[in-house]
Amino acid sequence: MSIQHFRVALIPFFAAFCLPVFAHPETLVKVKDAEDQLGARVGYIELDLNSGKILESFRPEERFPMMSTFKVLLCGAVLSRVDAGQEQLGRRIHYSQNDLVEYSPVTEKHLTDGMTVRELCSAAITMSDNTAANLLLTTIGGPKELTAFLHNMGDHVTRLDRWEPELNEAIPNDERDTTMPAAMATTLRKLLTGELLTLASRQQLIDWMEADKVAGPLLRSALPAGWFIADKSGAGERGSRGIIAALGPDGKPSRIVVIYTTGSQATMDERNRQIAEIGASLIKHW
């Protein structure tokens, strides 16, 4: 067993022997301040990774656009098919120029040779490549099948209805392509620590998230040296922004954090800054 596999296998073990965790309302004060600064709703939840206990939450059962955070769930569904012998990570998928959609920095470079399922998941999570996500959605049967996968996990809230990039439209009061912070946090925890996926697939999923290259201005910008984070960000229309993450000190994750916002007129930089400040408060009061 590799060191990384050992780390993920012992996530519940280490967490069980940690000192009790206590909620700190100071972080919620910052979440509410972010709402004021952005002029928009902000949803927040913080779960203990081992027990699933909610440590703090704000608007945990209000719907927010998922945006690209759905790509972690998508690759979880792909990995479940791999575990069941219905898919192979090494299978190569070929596609054409007509398949390319807006923001496809990886797939646009491989029109000639195609990409493997493993490479597509890596591109979808680490670079948020939209064509990679659409190609992977095709392998599982489309958005409705991802929703069905989530329902089978016990998540009857999260739903995907459309493809990239239309799913980022974020129309107010439109339930399409949305989740709730509580539902997303619980589902992410199941994917990373539950028995739904094999140990190898859980490790692969967290490795992809740990290698995320496009979430630097968010929670990662607030992390002290030595902290662990595996995350996936999302951005959408109407001032929408979000991030889902597993993080913790001492090089291992111990909490799940989900943050979503929508309806702001603020710039992307300002949305990023507010999420980073929430992260800084979380870490300060850990």
Rank of each mutant, 00 (worst) to 15 (best):
E166K: 13
R241D: 02
L167I: 13
G76Y: 05
R176S: 09
G216I: 07
D269S: 13
I93T: 05
A148G: 14
R159A: 06
I229T: 02
D36F: 15
Q4N: 15
P65D: 01
C18W: 12
L191V: 09
D269E: 15
M66K: 00
G236P: 00
N173S: 13
E270K: 13
E26R: 08
A34K: 04
I54L: 11
C18R: 01
W286H: 04
D207S: 15
P181F: 00
K32M: 15
D177N: 04
Q88R: 12
A9C: 12
V106M: 12
Q274P: 05
L205G: 00
L219A: 03
A215N: 05
P105L: 06
F14S: 08
L10A: 14
A182H: 12
E35V: 04
T179Y: 00
I259C: 07
M268H: 09
A183H: 12
D99P: 04
M1A: 02
I256W: 01
K252P: 05
H5P: 08
L136G: 02
H24R: 13
D207N: 11
D269T: 11
A225I: 14
F149Y: 10
V21L: 07
G85M: 08
N152C: 11
T131M: 05
Q37E: 14
A183S: 11
A225S: 13
L19I: 15
E169S: 15
I93E: 05
P172G: 10
T138V: 15
R159W: 06
L191H: 04
N152H: 15
N173K: 13
S2G: 08
K252Q: 14
L38D: 06
G76H: 02
A170R: 08
V82F: 07
G263M: 06
D83R: 03
L219Y: 03
I206K: 12
R162T: 08
M127W: 13
S96M: 10
R92E: 08
Y260A: 02
R271E: 05
G85F: 06
H151D: 09
R41W: 07
V8S: 15
L49Q: 05
V21K: 06
K53W: 09
A9V: 10
P217R: 09
L191P: 00
G226S: 11
G234D: 00
T131E: 03
L49S: 07
L167T: 08
V214Y: 05
K53L: 13
T147I: 08
R7E: 08
T107C: 09
